[in-house]
Amino acid sequence: MADAPVVAVRGEAYREVAPELARFTVTAVARDRDRETTLTRLAERAAAVRALLDAAGPTVERRETGQVRVWPVTKRSGERVVAYQGSVSTTVTVTDFTALGELMLRLADQEQVEVAGPVWSLRPDSPAHREARHAAIADALVRAREYAEALGARVTALRELADTGLTAAPPMLAKAAFARSGDSAPELELDPAPQPVQAAVEARFTISEPVLD
């Protein structure tokens, strides 16, 4: 009925779920007074990084070369070049967290290589997003029924439903711990950061005639 009473509510859901992806950046750098030497060293170090990532096999789900930079270093007082510097950055995506720490350490053990991360996240199509949306709708229905019950009425139909947004956590860095015992290889323990997922909807329900005694 067009003139039936309406109750408007907001449904919300909040979940913390385990991350599905870990991303880190590995950067090979080189510097020398001679330009050709800098370029040669940079290419060699970038190739060593690629070889390690190739050897990691299915542990690495995806890798992307981000930025390649080569620039002259000049004196502050003028334009005289005193050296050449270069860097190659690669973003690596991993889903096997059990092998993540070992892979990062192997890369960090290379000459003139910097490793930064990991950043934990969910996949864009993660089931966690769908579950949060469903939970937000269920919350809206519960609230509508509670309001209707307080009026001595009942929910009869859904009139309108609007998605007010779904958000995930901002990128979070890992908690890392290094451990070395005697001559054994170093170990890197990582604690994956739980990923908050939120969803909210606004809904309008028609209700039966309230009992206002």
Rank of each mutant, 00 (worst) to 15 (best):
V49R: 01
P118F: 11
G165M: 05
V82N: 05
L107A: 00
A116Y: 12
Y147C: 05
D213L: 11
A157I: 12
V6Q: 12
E79P: 04
T27I: 10
R23T: 14
T40G: 07
P58R: 03
T95A: 15
V201L: 02
T164A: 09
V113F: 05
V201P: 00
R63T: 06
E64V: 08
L42Y: 01
V197I: 15
D32T: 07
R15E: 12
G66C: 06
A116S: 13
P58E: 09
R145V: 09
E146Y: 07
D3E: 15
P19E: 13
P210C: 03
D96K: 09
S89V: 07
E79H: 07
A132H: 02
D213N: 13
V113W: 00
A148C: 10
V142C: 07
H129K: 05
P192A: 10
F97G: 05
T37Q: 13
A46I: 00
L141Y: 13
E64T: 08
D139C: 01
V94M: 09
P127N: 05
G101Y: 02
T37N: 08
P186W: 06
R33L: 08
G11P: 03
E189C: 07
A168E: 14
T91E: 15
R62G: 10
E44Y: 03
R130V: 10
A132Y: 00
P124I: 02
F97W: 11
V119T: 15
D32Y: 05
M1Q: 10
A55L: 03
E64R: 15
D54N: 02
S87M: 11
V73P: 04
V211W: 08
T38K: 00
E131R: 15
R130P: 03
L188H: 10
D191T: 15
V155W: 09
A83N: 04
T59E: 09
